[in-house]
């Protein structure tokens, strides 16, 4: 296995990706004092253990990290080892320049191809508290070694390929987190989380597949469960939330009908108007006048 430590400004190998602060694979053979002090984390750090057993602390919580576990540290969090050292073993560390101060707003930068609304969704999933560690996440190891070989092989298209792999890391991390979060849970709890996520992202063009994946279920099971629990197929439940929010905006704001339609996730004011009327008996304009 090759070991390396690439840092921005020092290593030519990663100069094509200014948003990568650090990418390294380290083998620790002996414990060195003050090699890993508690410090405020810059950017978002992914630490993935290949070998050994580590005790890492994020803010006030210490995690025991085993091989194939991934630790995700956000900007500004105190991160390090309470002993100030790295234990013997091997790990990959990837640190990205990402603005994530306002926990719900992950700002990746121009290099990323993740769409605006998917980015918001990903931010929400990974900003869930107490999700600093993702146990047994081998996929991250695979992605990291792909990045490694792209960096050192420099084949055609490698600059783009690495950015794509970085996007992949965000997406796969979010997916894994939502799966973990919901495993073994009782459905009402899961549903409650979905409900919150839908409310906070009403304008996102949700598909059933996406909703299902967000809470880690297959589409068929998801649809059945939602129907049985809420009485509505997933998309109808979403329409409930959209119309409810639209009513609130119609009553309490002067915003145009088109703005309200788009804000609440209808693709046109026509679509909004038809759906609204079907349910309430009034067009949005008429409804507003009556109030």
């Amino acid at each position: 296995m090759n070991y390396f430590s690439l840092t921005k400004g020092k290593s030519e190998e990663i100069s094509s990706w200014p948003h990568v602060f650090e990418f390294s694979k380290m083998k620790i053979q002996s414990v060195k004092a003050d090699s890993f002090l508690m410090e405020e984390n810059q950017g978002v750090t992914f630490m993935y253990v290949l070998d050994g057993k580590y005790y890492w602390t994020i803010e006030n919580q210490t995690f025991t990290v085993f091989p194939n576990d991934l630790v995700v540290v956000f900007p500004g969090q105190l991160f390090g080892s309470l002993t100030g050292t790295f234990e013997v073993g091997t790990f990959v560390s990837l640190r990205l320049d990402v603005d994530f101060q306002d926990q719900s707003e992950l700002r990746l930068g121009d290099w990323s191809n993740i769409t605006e609304s998917e980015r918001r969704l990903i931010s929400q999933i990974i900003s869930q508290k107490d999700q600093s560690i993702i146990p047994n996440f081998k996929l991250f190891g695979e992605l990291a070694s792909k990045i490694e070989s792209e960096i050192f092989a420099n084949e055609v298209g490698y600059k783009t390929k690495i950015n794509n792999l970085l996007d992949d890391i965000w997406i796969c991390t979010a997916r894994q987190m939502s799966k973990n979060e919901n495993q073994g849970r009782i459905f009402p709890q899961t549903f409650h989380r979905l409900d919150q996520m839908l409310r906070e992202n009403l304008s996102h063009p949700w598909t059933v597949e996406e909703m299902a994946a967000t809470i880690g279920l297959g589409t068929t099971t998801f649809t059945e469960k939602v129907k049985a629990f809420s009485g509505f197929p997933p998309l109808n439940y979403l329409i409930n939330l959209r119309i409810s929010e639209a009513i609130r905006l119609l009553k309490n704001s002067d915003r145009s009908l088109t703005d309200i339609a788009l804000d609440t996730g209808f693709y046109s004011s026509q679509h909004f108007s038809t759906t609204f009327k079907k349910l309430t008996g009034y067009t949005p304009g008429h409804f507003r006048k009556n109030n």
Partner: peptide, 25 residues
């Protein structure tokens, strides 16, 4: 027939319902 809506817990000790969602449901 039944239809569910969520209870909202904006903070500890608080339990709320969204009146518009109840109406639409």
């Amino acid at each position: 027939r039944k239809g569910s809506f969520s209870i909202l817990y904006p903070q500890a000790d608080h339990s709320e319902q969204d009146p518009e969602q109840v109406f639409i449901t």
